[in-house]
Amino acid sequence: MLKILKYSIYDLLRSRWSYVYFIFYLLIGFVLLFLNNDINKAVITLMNIIIVLTPLIGTIFGVMYYYNSKEFTELLLAQPIKRNKIFMGQYIGISLSLTLSLVLGLGIPFVLYGLFRSTAIFDFSLLILVGSFLNFIFVALAYNIALSTENKIKGFGYAILMWLFLAVIYDGLFMISLMLFNEYPLDNFSLIATMFNPIDLSRILILLKLDISALLGYTGAVFKDFFGTNKGFFLSFLVLCLWIIIPLFRMSRKLRKKDF
């Protein structure tokens, strides 16, 4: 698996898109710091970008890589390697190279600006950590979709719909249900509903830590009340891990029966 991983990363690190993505983050980092003139504020703005953008890029990269390397995967499948290892190697390769773009792209401007001397270092690290989680989660989801869909265009369509659903539509439905049932106690419902969406979960995780959960209104208050900050923190991370493990588990099951 390590060999496949090595070559996937190698291949991706030389692709133009990895650099476009890296430079994009680099620019965002510099621009935000320049406009806000304050690391703490920049971190909050950045959160809003990362939480929507990393899932989108992860989804697109995942699907694109799967379909583009299809013939090459077939060549690998004819080699004496287990199927699972080929796809795990590719999956980790994409996720890691995206994470690298994220860490370096944002890390460089913030470190140059004096991150290590600022109090925001913890918040910033959390942001990067959550961004990395989102990369791993959405590449896994995208690989699941691609593995189950032979048709490239359909696969792309489903993947984008999945992102749209989790990033936008889910929140809308969530809000509508909160408004419709606001006469009932909704604490448990909103907690559970949050767990079922990695984007919401990440957002809340960061907001809780940024200590501006009051801005979040209801959900934030419920989260603080229910878990106390530390417990909620670990539970959220556990759920984020499940969001990686469950798609990977499904992927390896699917691979056992898949024809290439």
Binding site: K3, D11, S69, E71, E74, P80
Partner: peptide
């Protein structure tokens, strides 16, 4: 499959690798 060589119908390789890198990679796998 270590004792089997296969020539697939369509040869499409990762476009960012060079020929020698690909050969080394496949050698590495077997």
């Amino acid at each position: 499959r270590n004792n089997l060589n296969y020539l697939p119908q369509i040869a499409n390789f990762p476009s960012n690798l060079s020929v020698i890198e690909l050969i080394k990679m496949v050698k590495n796998l077997r």
